[in-house]
Design a protein around this nucleic acid. Structure first.
Length: 649
RNA sequence: GCCUUUGUAGCUCAGAGGUAGAGCACUUCCUUGGUAAGGAAGAGGUCGCGGGUUCAAUUCCCGCCAAAGGCUCCA
């Protein structure tokens, strides 16, 4: 008996019945076989050494594939468990899945405690066990036998898990002395795990339920090569250095105050200037794209949010109403700008000839985020959206949507976020109670997004359950310089709010029609965007955004006056410069300016004062030699032009 | 919101049941210098906030607030 195996490139190969994915790999090349961690068989990830079911498609998975990594980390979790069982006899095991960066295992250690100091011993034991090259052996087990095994072991967690499983679907995996209830898949053997790091320990409730027992969760990560682990650890260090909370403080960009309140950022002058520049940049682009600025208040009558549906959806979990001397009158801090913009649209009748109407506002909104969710500038309770709402006819939706995509991409390009993903966020497939509006409207909106994206030829991933409660979204995730993903811009098509607010326009047929609304925010929120920008650039902002573009450093106090003259010259050229007039040596002034990440240092001493030049030093680069202020101006202009060139086409 | 940890000068941090210390930053003075830290002196704290125990609390206990990490990734 033979079976036919179709490979990803379309070729079909013939194998003996009972052949495994590993056999397939071996038949291609030995090198490939050494790297195979698991395989996708007819779309299902399975053990590489499990016999293929018959004619099928096979995709071999290696460390390069996310599923390959997941297999590695899942097996590593088992290895961790084996090590912990050896070092802490009597431990009971709950769940141990792979996660985005590594894996964890939730363990009931009884009275014992594990701290950072114990990690070394656990890693050592894992390495020792991995080196034994024990195979991961899969075995299908009848439910009764599974129950018997874990009853004898006294592991109530596994028993509870088994309880939820159907007889006939239960499998065990064994490596060395450790057997675990597991669906798999796993590595062929433990020797694939070469570099091991136990990262951290934390408490976690059994099944995430705070009323149940708290278990010890051990986090770890493993790699096929030591070098990769080393690189990963360097990356973590680098990420720590770039933390926007740390840099925000060091660069005097923003601060928080207990008195003002958690999650309510205070922008310091330099941060505010940076933010202002981002705002102006986008305002200009929007003006050119036919947007009109509007301004709306920070609070509104409760009725506005009852109409919009926000009150029903978030009222109870939000900032509570502001009352007035008038009994029963209630105002809310605005959590969204859209209802206000709907009312602006409604303030006068519209003809189809006016559409699309595009209202833009850098609107500050307030949302009561759970205290545990607050994080620096990325998750706050008061933030400013670069919001706009486009009201258009149903026929215009697709084109408008595509124009917005262009705008978002333009902004990313100008800020050097060259690496991004687009995610189509749709409704939850099962639970539709979270959403407002008719299925018909949802489908229309979803189709509009799909068509626009298809026409743009964009690569997208579809995520269910990620839609806003009033409509589907296209979300943009950028990858920063360290490869971390951040959600920034969003575009949403909305058929529902126009209905709730009874928005209308008069069509060519002289009949009233309902417009469609597009919500969009390229930055998302200024707070979040600045945070991501800080981490992306490590605080070395593009020249056009830098709070201070240059700092003038007189060699001694004798040249302070010349420094002021140069400062005036630069001001006339619209170059932002400050002067370090401190009574310090030049080495000291340079060091401080380098640490403040000021892009250019302009040194003025006797030589320069005599020649009417400045000595230019670039941050991180060193001395560029001397030039006239006019030449420096040209240099700055060229640099800015080069960094913004993406936004000119 | 829940769990764990933390909260001492502007910043980074040390310290102990008898009301506090370092380095950097700051102020003043000396020094007037050439591409990553010149020298000296001084000033600066309700030890997160509120309560309790104690002769005595910043230290021990309780509550609150804030921050960090984790949870809401279900074999």
């Amino acid at each position: 008996m033979k079976i036919n195996v179709t490979l990803p490139d379309g070729t079909v190969r013939e194998y003996e019945k009972g052949a495994t994915a590993m056999d397939v790999a071996l038949s291609i090349s030995e090198g490939l076989a050494r790297n195979v961690l698991s395989a996708k068989v007819d779309g299902e990830v399975r053990d590489a050494n499990r016999p293929l079911p018959g004619d099928c498609t096979v995709q071999l998975l290696t460390w390069k594939d996310d599923e390959g990594k997941a297999t590695m980390w899942h097996s590593s979790a088992h290895l961790l468990a084996e090590a912990v069982e050896a070092l802490y006899p009597g431990s009971k095991f709950a769940i141990g899945p792979p996660i985005e960066n590594g894996f964890y295992y939730d363990i009931d250690l009884g009275d014992k405690m594990i701290g950072d100091g114990d990690f070394k011993a656990i890693e050592q034991k894992m390495k020792e066990l991995a080196a034994k090259k024990e195979s991961f052996i899969r075995r299908e087990v009848p439910k009764a036998e599974a129950i018997a095994y874990f009853t004898e072991k006294g592991d109530e967690y596994k028993l509870e898990l088994i309880d939820d499983l159907e007889d006939g679907t239960i499998s065990f995996y064994t490596q060395g002395n450790f057997t675990d209830l597991c669906r798999g898949p796993h590595l062929p053997d433990t020797s694939y795990i070469k570099a091991i790091k136990v990262m951290s320990v934390a408490g976690a409730y059994w099944r995430g339920d705070e009323k149940r027992k708290q278990l010890t969760r051990l986090y770890g990560i493993t790699f096929p090569k030591q070098k990769e682990l080393d690189e990963y650890l360097v990356l973590l260090e680098e990420a720590k250095k770039r933390d926007h909370r740390k840099l925000g403080k060091e660069l005097d960009l923003f601060t928080f105050s207990e008195k003002v309140g958690a999650g309510l950022p205070l922008w310091l002058p330099k941060g505010a200037a940076l933010r202002e520049r981002l705002v102006n940049f986008l305002k200009d682009l929007q003006e050119k794209s036919g947007y009109q600025q509007v301004v709306t208040p920070h609070i509104a009558h409760k009725d506005l949010y009852v109409t919009s549906g926000h009150y029903d959806k978030y009222g109870a979990d939000s900032f509570q109403p502001i009352r007035t001397p008038d009994p029963g009158e209630e105002f809310f801090l605005k959590p969204m700008n859209c209802p206000h913009h709907c009312e602006i649209y409604k303030s006068r009748p519209h003809s189809y000839k006016d559409l699309p109407v595009r209202y833009a506002e850098f609107g500050t909104v307030y949302r009561y985020e759970q205290s545990g969710e607050l994080h620096g500038l990325t998750r706050v309770r008061g933030f400013t959206q670069d919001d706009a709402h486009l009201f258009c006819t149903p026929e215009q939706v697709k084109e408008e949507f595509m124009k917005v995509i262009d705008l978002v991409l333009l902004v990313f390009k100008a800020l050097n976020f060259t690496n991004y993903e687009a995610q189509v966020s749709l409704r939850d497939k099962e639970d539709r109670t979270k959403y407002i509006g008719s299925d018909e409207n949802w489908e229309k909106a979803e189709n509009a997004i799909m068509e626009a994206v298809a026409e743009k030829g964009m690569n997208t991933v579809v995520e269910y359950g990620e839609a806003a409660f009033y409509g589907p979204k296209l979300d943009f995730m950028v990858k920063d310089a360290l490869g971390r993903k951040w959600q920034l811009g969003t575009i949403q098509v909305d058929y529902n709010l126009p209905e709730r607010f009874e928005l209308e326009y008069v069509g060519a047929d002289n009949q009233k029609h309902r417009p469609v609304m597009i919500h969009r925010a390229p930055f998302g929120s200024l707070e979040r965007f600045v945070a991501v920008l800080i981490e992306h650039t490590a605080g070395r902002f593009p020249l056009w955004l830098a709070p201070e573009q240059a700092i003038i450093l007189p060699i001694s106090e004798k040249f302070n006056e010349t420094a002021h003259q140069v400062g005036e010259l630069l001001k006339e050229c619209d170059i932002r410069a400050v002067i370090d007039e401190r009574n310090e040596k030049i080495g000291r002034k340079i060091r401080d300016a380098e640490m403040a990440k000021t892009p250019f240092m302009l040194i003025i001493g006797e030589k320069e004062a005599g020649a009417g030049t400045i000595s230019v030093r670039e941050h991180g680069q060193g001395d560029l030699g001397s030039m006239t202020p006019a030449q420096f101006k040209t240099l700055v202009e060229e640099r800015i032009k080069a960094s913004l060139s993406g936004s000119v086409n």
